[in-house]
Amino acid sequence: MVMSETTDSPIANPVNKSLENENIAHGEPKMRARGVDVYYGDKKAIDGVDIDVYTEYVTAFIGPSGCGKSTFLRALNRMNDTIPSARVTGTIELDGEDIYASGMDVVQLRARVGMVFQKPNPFPKSIYDNIAYGPKIHGLAESKPDLDEIVEKSLRRAGLWEEVKDRLADSGTALSGGQQQRLCIARAIAVDPEVILMDEPCSALDPIATAKIEELIDELRGRYGIVIVTHSMQQAARVSQRTAFFHLGHLVEYGHTSDIFTNPAEQRTQDYITGRYG
């Protein structure tokens, strides 16, 4: 997803006025991004994005393929660090701390900002060990019963407990695709993160599994700040309260989901959601 040229007219302030006011109403945002650029080598993939993420709302990133929404998502927990050529400038704050500051610990950051990927990627271990992985490496459980409790709680929150409680020792890879993805969400929940980033979590799943995940996302709202990248506008409309529309590396528009879909401020947003391109 490398951007060629970003010759479009720069957007002065993509954030809706209504949202500006809401900031005061809801206190500080959980995550705040200002002037974020992401480069792959010399190519600029994200250009000057400002965005706020709240715990109370599910935030959806939409936009055509290659628009940079996943790239931006990966910048939020510094997963871009794993790509040698990627570089991020601007500031992204988590509870007011700059996550790219030298004092920020990336391990701790990722424990606080979890991630669920496009394709379910359970580890080739048992279901139990998949969930227990995070608590174990971070030392969050004092004892075996502690760990058992965390595993059960996480699976329950992910709505998977009833389905797998009798086969916790089976391999995580033996589950169905939808179950695998819920396992991955449970895995992320197990370390009790503050924000969960989801990168097109349903794109590899069938409609029934997708519905389950969407239900789950709704249940998790409020407890965790959730950011979801999605290809499907219907999904964004169903699960999110805030929507950001990305195009060619720019954040075109960010606002209430209902506003974006019914009354977009930008022509390009209008064109995208009415299906002129994408």
């Binding site: 997963m79 391990v107 990722r110 424990a111 979890g114 991630m115 990627n121 995070g134 895995r187």
Partner: peptide, 17 residues
């Protein structure tokens, strides 16, 4: 697969973990 590694790193595991 890289996804496996990403999954672990995204949990906040260190490289050697």
């Amino acid at each position: 697969p890289q996804a496996m590694k990403d999954g672990s790193l995204a949990m906040g595991a260190t490289q050697n973990e």
